[in-house]
Design a protein around this nucleic acid. Structure first.
Length: 877
RNA sequence: GCCGGGAUGGCGGAAUCGGUAGACGCAGCGGACUCAAAAUCCGCCGCCGCAAGGUGUGUGGGUUCGAGUCCCACUCCCGGCACCA
């Protein structure tokens, strides 16, 4: 055994052992509980970043922990390989997306292996391979024929210069990121998955997910946004509109219907189009509304604008004429593309009415905050439920009674009814991009939209393609889109849109169960492994990816492909990795961001950072604050450099120790130093154990007989106490304090008295043997390499993976005397020692008699004495 | 704008059911070893104060014998908002 810790040697040896024994390759085994541990698969962007290392380290800790607990653990890995960055790289560097992607996969796989993750690589999938996406296309055709996928118009960001559709992130301040052109909204036909058909189930099932964080479930609940309301029909005024019909709106506040003073429609609404036909000013306004992107955050924060159409509709209860306005904040894609406006009781309508001088009619009086009229400024009380006023026959009714009565009257007139609405919208999956899964549809002039038949799947994405950033590449490739109609055999055109990459990530976790099956999407093995027992990934996926996956699993269930409904039993959402930023101001207001690795910080005598300078030139740089590691702020720390310098175990240990998994992790170079220092101490102790301590172990162990010198019994109790804490912390996934406990155990082992005399030395050796074996097993999920080698070198066994997880012993934890804190009037004043089984009366007496109590009671009699067993005594005077 | 989360020493964080605030580590300071440095080891370390003691968990209130933890009002920071993944 080497006397110095050499991570590279240790880690090569351990990884070689795992490779030789195929340690992490698993098969179905009915004899053991299965544990499917999954980390979100990475997008192969080039090289691993620190967020990946964190994600996969957390997953690996859980996988290895459960393996030692006796589970049959599956931990697979793959690549979320379709997406925009590959196309951007193609434009920038003239590399084909496929070549770029596969090269990245190759490199990043090597990095993952170097980190020692317990992955079953035989199940690896890459979503950009036809072997993977053909099943996605197959399922698409199934769901299309079932009606779960349909076609309708959707709104996209259109760049008129590049003649291409832009992602929301490609729209910056309303302009295309490459062309700089003003972006327009454009309606194009797209395929949609009917996720709303599962809205109720997706909502209700959240209650059966105790293993998910409450905050994630709450976000999903709000996202689905089930609301009970009333659909109200406003008949067209024939004289202004010139046609008969009804304007439909949905409202959750039907009780305020008598206060509606106008209606507003989206710029794309048919009534708006009709009114604009003879009104140039209105047409110009509608045109203006079509400028800008489609992102909700932009729409919600922009200035609310509107214009009257001159059209009128009829109030369904009063018969009054209400003006129809076009408003930029009403969305065509949400609900009916029209809203009824009640300025007195809705903040947005209130502001709009004030701006354009529209009437405000108060119809509700709040029962909490009294007000007699709804004068400006707006007050939240105006929007509260209350008792109806100025509402004719409905006066005096409270919210629910008013809604019921109004809904009944509307239904009687055939002008509305109660309805449940969801905020959730159907999932538009068409993308006008190249690097994605081709949508398996054929458009025939005679037969319409025809799904590609099974025997013609997969529709393979051609790889010899030119990417320019203008238009849709596939739509420029006749070799791809020219085809014959599967129904009638006539020439037809193949769909050139590809699927949203969220589709691939909505079922990859099921494919891992049977990644080698070339004849089916999934097989019976999926019902052994599914659902995923533990899913780990970034909080940023709390809504979209997780909701789509829950939907997809149900869609596959209803196709008879899988038995389960919920894909992920337990969810752990990890926090971001952040680091300090540094910069220098450049001319033109730009900033030159400087990597932390190139910066030296200066501290005052208390260790506070007071200044920073660039190491290269010694000149000052500005400290820019802590932000998420990113290319744009140049504050990323390369995990590869870290592993090269310190080894995988140090990288893993630092990442686990620096913060609990669900909180953000702040990068710290000196923290890494500390992690490396700890591992050197572990190695040193292992070396001392193997060479000096182990040889003096007695033939007959005394620990089991419970006979130990008091000082060593204290050490042993401390170790078992820390072990108990560590096991508790493992249970709640607070791994940073597991590391703390391991550090405390090492501290205790190092300080354990090793006095002269054969008896004492033998007893010490026994405590050290038991304690170090606990320490190595406790640390092995986190730093598996060093623990593997030390376990062997210290003679504990051949493979720590096969060792049982350590549990604390009651006999080692027992103690006769305990210390209690003494408080006077809630302030800490001293402590007393009492027998562990002392009664309340005895504790009270001892506390009152204590020196600290006597001093601070100042002779006053105790008014009350509170005894908290095992904790403290509070004397109130 | 809407939905969700967070804030504790110089720093990362700990405190399990309302019961010793600051465990563990980092940085800093003092010392040992060394020709010297690194590494290592020992000690100190919230703030004010010579001390006794006081004070302290983003801000302002409240409940309680006792509040980082519960309640109310606010401030700032972060994640998501449907075409980034």
């Amino acid at each position: 055994m080497q006397d110095r810790y050499q991570p590279a040697t240790v880690e090569t040896a351990a990884q070689q052992h795992w490779e030789n024994t195929q340690a992490f390759r698993v098969a179905e085994d009915a004899g053991r509980p299965k544990y499917y541990c999954l980390s979100m698969f990475p997008y192969p962007s080039g090289k691993l970043h620190m967020g990946h290392v964190r994600n996969y380290t957390i997953g690996d800790v859980l996988a290895r922990f459960h393996r030692m607990k006796g589970c049959n653990v599956l931990q697979p890995m793959g690549w979320d390989a379709f997406g925009m960055p590959a196309e951007n790289a193609a434009i920038q560097n003239n590399v084909p997306p496929a070549k770029w992607t596969y090269a990245n996969i190759e490199y990043m796989k090597g990095q993952l292996k170097r980190l020692g993750f317990a992955i079953d690589w035989s199940r690896e999938v890459a979503t950009c391979t036809p072997e993977y996406y053909r099943w996605e296309q197959w399922l698409f055709t199934r769901l299309y024929e079932k009606g779960l996928i349909y076609k309708k118009l959707g709104t996209v960001n259109w760049d008129p210069v590049d003649e291409t559709v832009l992602a929301n992130e490609q729209v910056i301040d309303g302009r295309g990121w490459r062309s700089g052109a003003l972006v327009e909204k454009r309606e194009i036909p797209m395929y949609y998955m009917k996720i709303t058909a599962y809205a109720d189930e997706l909502l209700a099932a959240l209650d059966d997910l105790p293993g998910w964080p409450e905050q994630v479930k709450l976000m999903q609940k709000n996202w689905i946004g089930r609301s009970e309301g009333v659909e109200v029909h406003f008949p067209y005024d024939l004289s202004t509109i010139g046609a008969s019909g009804v304007l439909k709106v949905f409202t959750t506040r039907a009780d305020t219907l008598m206060g509606a003073t106008y209606v507003a429609v989206a710029a794309e609404h048919p009534l708006a189009t009709r009114a604009a036909a003879g009104n140039a000013e209105l047409a110009a306004f509608i045109d203006e509304c079509k400028h800008g992107g489609v992102a909700e955050a932009d729409l919600a924060t922009m200035e609310k604008k509107g214009m009257p159409t001159g059209l009128r509709v009829v109030h369904p209860l009063t018969g009054e004429y209400l003006p129809v306005w076009v408003a930029n904040y009403v969305l065509m894609g949400y609900g009916e593309g029209a809203v009824m406006a009640v300025p007195a009781h809705d903040e947005r309508d209130f502001a709009f009415a004030a701006k354009y001088g529209l009437p405000i009619r108060m119809v509700v009086r709040s029962t909490h905050d009294a007000y007699d009229n709804v004068a400006a400024p707006w007050t939240d009380a105006y929007a509260e439920h209350g008792k109806l006023v100025n509402s004719g026959k409905y006066d005096g009714l409270h919210f629910q009674d008013a809604v019921d009565a109004i809904a009944t009257d509307l239904a009687a007139k055939n002008l509305g009814a109660k309805r449940t609405q969801y905020r959730l919208r159907d999932w538009g999956i068409s993308r006008q991009r190249y690097w994605g899964c081709p949508i398996p549809m054929i458009h025939c002039e005679d037969c319409g939209d025809v799904p590609v038949p099974d025997e013609q799947l997969p529709v393979v994405l051609p790889e010899n393609v030119e990417i320019t950033g203008r238009g849709s590449p596939l739509a420029k490739m006749p070799g791809f889109y020219r085809c014959t109609c599967p129904k009638c055999g006539k020439p037809a055109r193949r769909e050139t849109d590809t699927m949203d990459t969220f589709v691939e990530s909505s079922w990859y976790f099921l494919r891992y169960a049977c990644a080698d099956n070339a004849t089916a999407m999934v097989d019976a093995r999926v019902n052994y492994w599914a659902p995923v027992d533990q899913y780990i990934g970034g909080i940023e996926h709390a809504i979209l990816h997780l909701l789509y996956s829950r939907f997809f699993t149900r869609a596959m269930r209803d196709e008879g492909l899988v038995n389960v409904s919920e894909p992920f039993t337990n969810l752990l959402t990890q926090g971001m990795v952040v680091a300090e930023t540094y910069y220098r101001d450049q001319t033109g207001g730009k900033k030159l961001w400087i990597n932390p690795a190139e910066v030296q910080v200066e501290r005052d005598d208390k260790g506070r950072v007071v200044a920073a300078k660039l190491a290269a030139d010694g000149q000052p740089v500005v400290i820019g604050g802590t932000e998420k590691m990113s290319k744009s702020k140049n504050n990323g720390v390369d995990p590869q450099a870290l592993v090269d310098q310190y080894g995988a175990d140090t990288a893993r240990l630092f990442i686990i120790f620096a913060a609990p998994p669900d909180q953000q992790l702040e990068w710290s170079d000196s923290g890494v130093e500390g992690a490396a220092r700890f591992l050197r101490r572990v190695w040193q102790f292992g070396h001392a154990f193997a060479s000096d301590i182990r040889p003096v172990l007695p033939a007959a162990r005394r620990l089991t007989a419970g006979k130990l010198p008091a000082l060593l019994a204290d050490v042993r109790r401390e170790i078992h106490t820390h072990l108990k804490q560590a096991n508790y912390d493992f249970g709640k996934h607070q791994f940073n304090t597991v590391v703390s406990a391991a550090m405390k155990i090492l501290n205790a082992l190092e300080k354990a008295p090793r006095e002269d005399g054969t008896e004492m030395r033998a007893a010490h050796a026994e405590v050290a043997e038991e304690g170090f074996a606990i320490l190595l097993r406790l640390l092995s999920p986190i730093t598996p390499h060093i623990c593997h080698v030390l376990w062997q070198d210290c003679g504990f066994g051949t493979d720590i993976l096969a060792a049982a997880w350590p549990e604390p012993l009651e006999a080692a934890l027992a103690q006769d005397e305990i210390e209690l804190v003494v408080q006077v009037n809630g302030k800490l004043r001293g402590s007393i020692k009492v027998a562990a089984d002392a009664g309340k009366a005895a504790i009270e007496t001892a506390a009152l008699a204590s020196e600290a109590a006597q001093k601070f009671m100042e002779g006053k009699p105790p008014k009350k004495v509170v005894v908290v067993p095992g904790r403290l005594v509070n004397i109130v005077v």
